[in-house]
Simulated assay, not measured.
Amino acid sequence: MIHIRLAEKKDVPSIWEVAEKTWPVSYKHVISPGQIRYMLDLMYNPEKIEAAINDPSQAFWLAEENGKVLGFCGIEHNYPETGITRIHKLYILPETQGSGIGKTLVDHVAKEARKCGCTKLHLNVNKRNTAVGFYQKNGFLTDREEVLDIGNGYVMDDFVMVKELNGFL
């Protein structure tokens, strides 16, 4: 059975491991190996993960089974504005994708968002990422397209997606 819990500093290596195993599989047909490595080093170095865990405005939720971390979701309430919970990161180990873990995390985050008075979930996803279909299936709609320069000659070519939480329990 999947258990959702808040990450702690001791979980940094597990979060890093899930990212390291997931990104090369999830993005191999979307961005170059060089950009994958650049983004992993930029966003998932242990200092960045620990800073997010320690930031009172953010939370990392872990999905685990029998003590093994199978996925995670990094969020921030009232970002980019009041009433919105931002999903900064959501990754599930490739061998467990399609088993409902991602939906379980999204549903958990939606409940946490409502507890904080937020009425929308908000995220960016690469336009060519197969996760677009996952988000659509889970009630997210495309709000707009966005291209972000992330340095080193790389960009993120994304959809900004939003899910309304009105009536969600």
Rank of each mutant, 00 (worst) to 15 (best):
I87N: 04
C118E: 08
R86L: 09
T104Q: 10
V155N: 01
E81N: 14
Y154N: 02
S99D: 08
I75M: 05
C116I: 02
I150S: 03
K137I: 05
I150L: 04
E76Y: 01
Q97C: 01
I84Q: 08
E145K: 15
K120L: 07
A110Q: 11
N129M: 08
F159R: 07
N129H: 05
G98A: 14
L90V: 15
D143L: 15
H108Q: 00
T85R: 07
K103E: 15
H122G: 03
F134Q: 02
H77V: 01
L148I: 12
K89N: 12
N126C: 01
V106L: 15
L141I: 12
N124F: 09
G153I: 11
G139L: 03
N138F: 01
R86E: 07
F159L: 14
N129Q: 12
K111N: 05
M156R: 01
D157T: 02
I84R: 11
L93E: 10
P94E: 05
Y91T: 05
E145I: 13
V160Q: 00
H108T: 08
G151S: 07
T85P: 09
K120P: 04
R86M: 06
K127I: 10
H108R: 09
E95R: 11
D157E: 02
D143M: 12
F159I: 13
V132R: 08
L148N: 00
L105S: 05
T82C: 04
K111T: 09
I84D: 05
A113C: 13
I92A: 03
R114Y: 10
G153N: 07
T130A: 12
A131G: 11
L141H: 07
N126V: 03
V160N: 02
V155T: 13
D158M: 10
Q136G: 00
E112C: 11
Y91P: 10
N78K: 03
R144L: 08
T96N: 01
R144A: 08
K103M: 10
K137N: 13
V160G: 00
G153K: 11
N78Y: 03
